[in-house]
Every structure is written in structure tokens, then in C-alpha cells.
Nucleic acid binder design. Structure first.
Length: 407
RNA sequence: GUGACCGUAGCUCAGGUGGUUAGAGCGCCAGGUUGUGGCCCUGGAGGUCGGGGGUUCGAGUCCCCUCGGUCACCCCA
């Protein structure tokens, strides 16, 4: 038996890989235009980084981590997300002041796969450190919005909420907890279990939607500064022309968030796992990791999901497919392919020993624009070039072929 | 972790109540045209019926286990 790819992992092959390539290149250009620098961190980290950074009581840490002991018995974990790593790297390098980093890479969570949810999945993201201005939130939200727009994803909208500052959050947590206790009989078992530890997580539970609809929302109990910050974010989004809706129950599952949280959805991509990306402000994280306070906001985009929502690209093929009519002239044909490539063209040739007819068939299947026939006319210094779309043929001088094909 | 549905050629699928050499379409390779693709015709290659165990004279078909897929819950990108 051929070994299978592990459950919840994917091989990215053509034609889908073309969408990946488009998106990844687009993201890199985009991030650089906004001033973010490439930031690479390890795929595995000390387990403690995530339990402290992401939060002991979160779903991710409780049951979704790929944790293992290495040969020296260190507890390591395949990263379930990258934000904690970037902050660790910033603190560890002794960096100070504003830092803007972007990353792209696989993340790992031990979950039951379904549409848009994989055990190894790919995120691209940006982190904007040491900048408390609401305009930083706006910029980050804009990057994700642009990425989706550039990728051709339609019907994109932003869901926005604020969780307030840690003090607001603590007060709100108590308020929510007492509300939920009063309705404990109506709650799902999961929700009852979470009630004491991390009641905010009950808010985005589908099973408890009815109860939650009557619950107080975090947005109603935030303090003055956080409220002003939120107004600033909203004003900035309006200025940037980014459509958003307030989602009072949006909390997101990671403990480090404060104030702004957001996610992207598309009206034209409907699956249970519909968030194409998300993020928020996480001012408390640096201190949670034992560092000094560092204001921060960031986002992560789910590439696997975005690719599902992207339109199919135009099929692309070689500019010139060189075909061998006379096997004696193989060396000449290979030389021609080489010259075409040097000229910057996409040139191919079938390296098997197939009939002319079969070679044409391959050229057609590959969506070649032109086919150059290397045969007897080579003695006269020419090749026959056929335009595949309409079958029109012309004789072209050998040295003219690259220029001819470039038109 | 839970639930539902599903695993037969590269792909999409047929294979009443268990019974001789497991089929089709598409794709692939070759030929029809030894210098020409897309259409058509002909031929060919390709399957331990996801894997293991069991029942039976006999299992693709029945039973159990297991691996994987799809979708949903949970949660998140």
C-alpha cells in the first residue's frame, strides 16, 4: 500500500497550487508596501509559550495542540498560531519601539477535519508591535481586506467588535458569569463547564445561541479609553472605505485579545468555517510572556480557506512548444528551447520519443500558444510556427523565433 | 472528542436476495494519416474491490475491527 498523507493534511498540486502562488506572492507584495518585514519563527516552540500566551483555558491549548517530548524530554509543540512566536522573538531579540512583521507558513491543530479546517493549515499574517494608535488597528484590517480583494474574493465584509481593556473584561466576565449561572439549566454541557473558567467562550457557541442572545454584550460595559479607541477604529475604517458590521458576540478564542477583534467573511463563501481571516489587538500578550508592556495588533489569514473562495484563474500554458518532426534534429530542437528560455519565454518540449501527432497532442493539452516544428526546413534556416488557437502557420527564420514569439 | 454519510481502474460511477475470467464513460498509450493538436473510428495498458479478521463450499456483496474521505457539532484561519 502507498502511504497516505496524514489525516487533515493536503498536498497542494496544480491547478489549485496556481491559486496558492497568486495569493502568496500577492500577500508578500502587499505586506511590503505597508512596511512589514519578513519574520520567520520556528514551526515548533516550547509548549509553555502557547499555554501562557494563547491561554490555558482556550480550546486550542486544551485539546488542539500537537505536543510531543523530544529526545531530551523537552515538551515541544507544533505551533497552532504564530502571534505568540513573533512576540517572543521581538522580546527575545531585545527589540524596542515599533516593529512591523509579516509571516507565512503552516500551523498545526489537532482537530477533526472538515471543509476549511485542516490539521496542517497555512496562514499569512502581519503583526504591528508597539503602536497603540487605533490607526494601527485600521491599517492591519485594511491589509487583510486588500488581500482578499486582490485575490478576487467577492462579497467580503468585516465583522468587528471590542472586548474592552483587561479591567473591563474582568468586570464583564463576572457580569456574564452571573447571568449565565441564572440560565445554567438552559446551557449545553460544554457551556456549563466553561462558565467558571472562561465564560466569554460561551458567547460564540452555536448551541447556546438562544441563551446568549439575551446576555449582556462586552461592548456595553467598556470603559472610556477603550470606547474612544473603538470610535477611532470605526472612524478609520469609514475613512478607508472598508465595509464592516458590529458583531457584539464576536469574542475569538484566544486569551490575549483586548479591545479590537475582527474577522473577515464572504457572502459568496458559505461553509460552517467561514472566517477567512481574523485578528485583533493584543496589548496584554507581551506581559503574559513575562516582558514589558508592548501594545500590539495583528491578523492571521487562512490561506486554505481563501483559496476555496478564490475564482479559478485563466488557464496558462507555454508561449512556445517545440516539436520534433525529425528525431535526427533533437539537439537542434533542444537548443531552440534553450534560446527561447534565455529570451524569457516559457518554452517546453516533449522529451519522450513520441510521434509528431502525439507531440502536438501534448502541446494542445498544455495550452501552448505556439508550436515550433523542427524538421527539414531547418536546413533552410527556418522552423514552422503554428498558432494553436486558429492553426495558422508561418515559416520563421531560426534566429527570429524568440522575437517572433514575444509579440 | 461527538454524530451522519461514504470508500470498486488515474477520475466519475455500475455491480437485485453472497455463486464461474469485476464492468462502463472519461482520461492515458498506440494506430487509422511514418510533418501537425482539438472531432471521429479501432486497439491496448490499467483493479490485492481502503486494510485486517470472521461467517460460508464460495465474500466486492454479510458481521466485527481499523485506516481514510465528506459534512456538521465543538472551536477557529
Amino acid at each position: 500500500m502507498i502511504p497516505q498523507a496524514p489525516k487533515g493534511t493536503d498536498d497542494i498540486l496544480p491547478p489549485a497550487s496556481e491559486k496558492w502562488r497568486t495569493l502568496l506572492r500577492g500577500f508578500e507584495d502587499l505586506a511590503r508596501r505597508y512596511g512589514y518585514a519578513l519574520t520567520m519563527t520556528p514551526l515548533f516552540e516550547a509548549t509553555e509559550l502557547f499555554s501562557r500566551g494563547v491561554g490555558e483555558e482556550t480550546e486550542v491549548v486544551e485539546k488542539q495542540m500537537y505536543t510531543f517530548a523530544d529526545k531530551s524530554d523537552r515538551s515541544l509543540t507544533l505551533r497552532p498560531e504564530a502571534t505568540a512566536s513573533v512576540v517572543r522573538a521581538y522580546l527575545g531579540a531585545g527589540l524596542q519601539g515599533v516593529f512591523k512583521g509579516y509571516y507565512a507558513g503552516p500551523m498545526f491543530r489537532y482537530e477533526q477535519p472538515q471543509s476549511g479546517r485542516r490539521r496542517q493549515f497555512f496562514q499569512v499574517g502581519v503583526e504591528y508591535l508597539a503602536e497603540p494608535s487605533p490607526d494601527a488597528d485600521v491599517e492591519v484590517i485594511e491589509v487583510g481586506y486588500r488581500l482578499l480583494a486582490d485575490a478576487g474574493v467577492t462579497g467580503v465584509g468585516v465583522r468587528l467588535n471590542t472586548l474592552g481593556d483587561p479591567a473591563d473584561r474582568a468586570a464583564y466576565r463576572d457580569e456574564l458569569r452571573s447571568f449565565l449561572r441564572g440560565r445554567a439549566g438552559d446551557l449545553s454541557p460544554d457551556a456549563r463547564r466553561r462558565l467558571e473558567g472562561n465564560p466569554l467562550r460561551v458567547l460564540d457557541s452555536k448551541a447556546d445561541a438562544e441563551v446568549v442572545a439575551d446576555a449582556p454584550a462586552p461592548i456595553d460595559s467598556i470603559g472610556g479609553e477603550a470606547a474612544a479607541h473603538f470610535s477611532g477604529v470605526r472612524a478609520g475604517l469609514d475613512r478607508a472605505g472598508i465595509p464592516y458590521e458590529i458583531a457584539p458576540r464576536l469574542v475569538r478564542g484566544l486569551d490575549y485579545y483586548n479591545r479590537t477583534v475582527f474577522e473577515y467573511v464572504s457572502a459568496d463563501y458559505t461553509a460552517a468555517q467561514d472566517a477567512l481571516g481574523g485578528g485583533g489587538r493584543y496589548d496584554p500578550l507581551a506581559e503574559m510572556l513575562g516582558g514589558p508592556p508592548v501594545a500590539a495588533v495583528g491578523l492571521a489569514m487562512g490561506v486554505d480557506r481563501i483559496v476555496l473562495a478564490m475564482p479559478d484563474p485563466e488557464p496558462a500554458g507555454p508561449d512556445v512548444f517545440v516539436v520534433l518532426a525529425d528525431p535526427q534534429r533533437r539537439a537542434e530542437a533542444l537548443g531552440m528551447v534553450g534560446r527561447l528560455r534565455e529570451a524569457g519565454l516559457w518554452a517546453e518540449m516533449d522529451l519522450g520519443e513520441r510521434s509528431l501527432k502525439a507531440q502536438f497532442k501534448v502541446a494542445g493539452r498544455r495550452s501552448a500558444r505556439l508550436v515550433a516544428v523542427v524538421g527539414d526546413e531547418w536546413d533552410e534556416g527556418e522552423v514552422t510556427v503554428r498558432r494553436m488557437a486558429d492553426g495558422e502557420e508561418s515559416r520563421v527564420a531560426i534566429e527570429e523565433v524568440p522575437a517572433w514569439a514575444s509579440r
